[in-house]
């Protein structure tokens, strides 16, 4: 919830206060924050007591459990976006 409130504050700042010429600075800071978050995820993963053992024993199962659901999500969502959310296709349909 905090995340949403903070983002809404950002939206208001972006809409009313933030100079458009600083867009690139904003993008750069986003990249820095993203890399720091990915780094901290790596630390979290690497500092697990049995990380290497977990990766060797549970790694295969973990890989299956992230890969198959992720791929299935893509397989389901892609046609749905093409059918229901493709604005170009809808406009074409309306024109016909």
């Amino acid at each position: 919830m905090n995340v949403i409130i903070i983002m809404c504050a950002g939206i208001l700042v972006g809409k009313f206060l933030f100079p458009a010429k600083w867009k690139r600075v904003n993008e750069f800071l986003q990249t820095v924050c993203t890399l720091l978050l990915i780094f901290s995820m790596g630390v979290l993963l690497g500092s697990r007591e049995n990380f290497l053992r977990e990766i060797t024993t549970l790694g295969f199962q973990s890989v299956l459990f992230f890969l198959i659901p992720s791929v299935f999500s893509v397989i389901v969502v892609y046609p749905l976006t093409r059918i229901f959310l493709d604005k170009k296709r809808e406009k074409k349909k309306e024109a016909d």
Binding site: A9, L12, F18
Partner: peptide, 8 residues
Amino acid sequence: LVGISIGL
């Protein structure tokens, strides 16, 4: 920062 991007 993401909010700012959306607001822009």
